[in-house]
Write a protein that binds this DNA or RNA. Structure first.
Lengths: 252, 252
DNA sequence: CGCAGGATTGATATCAATCAATAACGGTGG
DNA sequence: CCACCGTTATTGATTGATATCAATCCTGCG
């Protein structure tokens, strides 16, 4: 519950040595783009596992790119029921809504310790004026988020419990792999079955029983706050899902 | 199932007389923006009620803005189960994903007869280069779609059947009102309870029973392929939903 | 008149939620 | 070291919500 504050560390990672560059899935920036990003970036910011980074209804003056760590976006109903909307991984943009609209309509919490690259919301206009190619990338990222939400909605609305779980785990393992967060099939993030339940729109107990079924079928193994994927192909088949594209994607 | 083709009617509505201008909720375009849109626009296109405008997995060379009529975006599972993702109303942008990515990941169908303003996907890059303010608006619209999907996901994942129905109907009535599609509380669109069911993630039968409950409580009245809102405030309260913002929004 | 699509209803089946325990584990204070 | 927690995972029993099945009833239309 501790409210994280930006640390005063500035440009610990210069943009031309951005730690995200090592991921093949992320497209390279041109020299002029990197130059713009260097001006755009105002600092870095660290969040502890479990801390809340963005609170629904507030208006954050910042826009972030995740440099490392895992988090998730969620919304809650007045009585506390929670729905996890999506997970946030390295290379993802966080807080765009808040920069465009009056306020954020969802909250964000860190699953692991996280490191962010910080931008001022005001300079977003400048980005659009001065560097159209990056503006295009921002829009691309927004469209990608929409695409993921579409699939989640299909999942929660029309897939059965076991199909949903199969979809979620193969979705997460594919996203994880693309940013080096999958080792021997294990998704390198500490998340609980409560998180899974609130993503799938199921109760905790039923989520547990569903994961056990997948385990009994030999498709996964749940182990200490994480999940080991045993048979990704079968998981995808159970879910009736095509998988993520393997093409490079932008980041800012 | 008939595949609609663009009609050869060009600029029936010049951009400076855009029929969308009459809606207060839509922000005015500057002279230079209107000038750009005139060049950007390549024609108009009409779709019949029930026709499929975009097919999942294909790659449409066009980007559309809805001038009139209602439609919906949806995805299906291999065995045919369908999830409606969102509804499409005048002023909405359609096909952005297809312009940015390789292919569309959802389908679009017309609920009523519809009229679209047509743009070439290639000129989107030009839009970003030449008119940053419109590029910003495109991104704004993408973020707005994301916001709606977030709320739908919360609904399908965590709201009960009656809460979901209450949310959907107040959501639709508010969107309808903003573009003159609400008359005496009636949502002016021909949709069936099957559409409602596939939006809520419920079966058709249960949807019918749920709507009947709302009707018994005096909150709505279902009547010939549409819905009359009797008490919007109570609907919103049942759903635990804040409602849509009333601020002007962009369109392109 | 008969037919098709949509709406409605009752009976039954199934899935998932809830309730209630227990187990396994790490951390903490004595 | 051990007793005591709190968190997470697990399991069985029961309840409740929603799906499915099967009719029937409209209403517009050829």
């Amino acid at each position: 519950m501790a409210k994280p504050r930006p640390l005063s560390i500035k440009h610990q990672h210069p943009c031309d040595q951005c730690p995200l560059k090592k991921h093949d899935i992320l497209r390279d920036l041109s020299a002029s783009e990197t130059e713009f990003m260097t001006r755009f970036k105002t600092g870095e910011f660290q969040a502890q596992a479990g801390s809340t980074i963005i609170v629904e209804g507030t208006n954050s003056p910042h826009l972030y790119t995740v440099l490392s760590g895992w988090g998730f976006r969620y919304k809650t109903l007045p009585d506390g029921r929670r729905q996890i909307l999506n997970f946030i991984l390295p290379g993802d943009l966080v807080g765009l809504q808040g920069s465009l609209m009056k306020e954020m309509s969802h909250s964000v919490e860190a699953l692991s310790d996280m490191m962010f690259c910080v931008f001022e919301r005001e300079s977003l206009t400048k980005l659009f004026k001065e560097t159209p190619s990056l503006a295009y990338d921002v829009t691309w990222l927004a469209a990608r988020e929409e695409q993921m939400l579409d699939e989640h909605l299909l999942s929660v609305g029309r897939r059965t419990a076991i199909e949903r779980a199969a979809y979620l785990i193969s979705f997460l393992s594919q996203r994880a792999r693309r940013v080096g967060q999958l080792e021997d099939g294990q998704i390198l993030v500490p998340f609980t079955q409560s998180h899974v339940a609130d993503t799938l729109g199921l109760s905790l107990v039923h989520t547990n029983k569903t994961l056990k079924k997948l385990q009994a079928r030999g498709l996964i193994k749940w182990s200490e706050r994480s999940c080991i994927v045993k048979d990704e192909e079968k998981l995808q088949h159970v879910a009736g899902w095509d998988g993520l594209p393997d093409t490079p994607r932008p980041f800012i």
